[in-house]
Design a protein around this nucleic acid. Structure first.
Lengths: 199, 199
DNA sequence: CACTCTATATATAAAAC
DNA sequence: TGTTTTATATATAGAGT
């Protein structure tokens, strides 16, 4: 049902929709450029909203691989930069144990910067911890305790085809442990829920 | 499977979902704070992605109404800022010749610092993504979508303790299949290598 | 505050203009 | 590169823990 000659009337699908992409460098320069452009705008928009919604000030400097530098500022880049540099000289923020490594060499220094970055680091580290906890049930199964030396996240990730015999034994043992866990769980559940699923 | 309208047992909707908001200053300080926090994180994440995807450099400085200043930088704030501000005296990072991870004032300092820290940040961010990915699989299973059509590579990632009986049966079946695979592999290996490991 | 959950608002990857 | 369309992937507001 694809009349080549009367194509004009066919409401052709113009897109397959947004695709998921991995966050790794986009190799095709054309795509990279397009993405850069789109995302830079999106970023600036987000920044703008953040400022308005929360009465925050912001300065963003982005340099594209091409070398061009784009900036965004609210109320303006200079103002925020000034404030930032200024605060560094005073540096009276809540600095945990670090009083002021207010070095002041050159126009910039790292004093507070370090603090903040440390904070960011801590934040994301905390997130990571959380995520890890979610997989707590599996942790003990993670590779590392058994004899293999493969860099797989989980021992079962190892491609069996490539394993040596001595590596398979501990694997099998673990698998059986796992199976037992499952079985015992089944019993418990069966007991509690009177659900007669057969094993 | 239709709940007998016993109001008390009805799992109440926990949320009405995201609401559209106007981009104007949020007056309630509590909400403003929460929003600031969420969006700042989102902004930094976007920035991070932009950098990775497009090999861009970036520096973001945000001052919250509370006066705190948060920064984000890739590869680090100074590098980008410095480039923007003064191409002249960018050697401040070397601290007059001593360009290392010296510790000066205070307990923290970090001077060695940003690059290093940023690197760690990136690494941990990457790890976080990984963990999140695994977490997704867990989540689906925990939610009872075991029989769903999610194409996760590792169905066994499910935290058994939290699974329900009906979720365990298919799991067990699969575990046994897996075990058989291992066993058969053992045989092959045994045959080939004449390694008398027992199963 | 830090985190979860849900329902929705937004941001965007692709493709074509 | 700018814009528009389409189909989806993400980000998040609001409420609760």
């Amino acid at each position: 049902m694809d009349p080549p000659s009367t194509a004009a009337t066919v409401p052709k699908k113009r897109s397959t929709g947004r695709k998921k992409i991995a966050i790794v460098k986009i190799e095709r320069s054309e795509r990279r450029q397009v993405t850069f452009s789109k995302r830079r705008m999106g970023l600036f928009k987000k920044a703008s909203e953040l400022c308005i919604l929360c009465s925050a000030e912001i300065a963003i400097l982005v340099s594209s691989p091409a070398g061009k530098v784009y900036t965004f500022g609210h109320p303006c880049v200079e103002a925020t930069l000034d404030r930032f540099l200024n605060q560094q000289q005073h540096d009276h923020m809540n600095h945990g144990g670090n009083n002021n490594n207010n070095i002041n060499v050159g126009a910039l220094n790292v004093s507070m910067q370090d603090q903040q970055q440390q904070h960011e680091y801590n934040e994301i580290a905390s997130l990571l911890e959380k995520e890890k906890k979610r997989g707590e049930a599996l942790e003990y199964l993670r590779k590392g305790d058994w004899n293999g030396n493969y860099d797989y996240q989980f021992w079962w990730d190892a491609p069996i085809e490539n394993l040596e015999l001595h590596e398979l034994n501990p694997m099998k043992t673990k698998l059986e442990e796992l199976r037992k866990m499952v079985e015992s769980k089944l019993v418990v559940d069966d007991h509690n829920n009177n659900n007669s699923s057969r094993v």
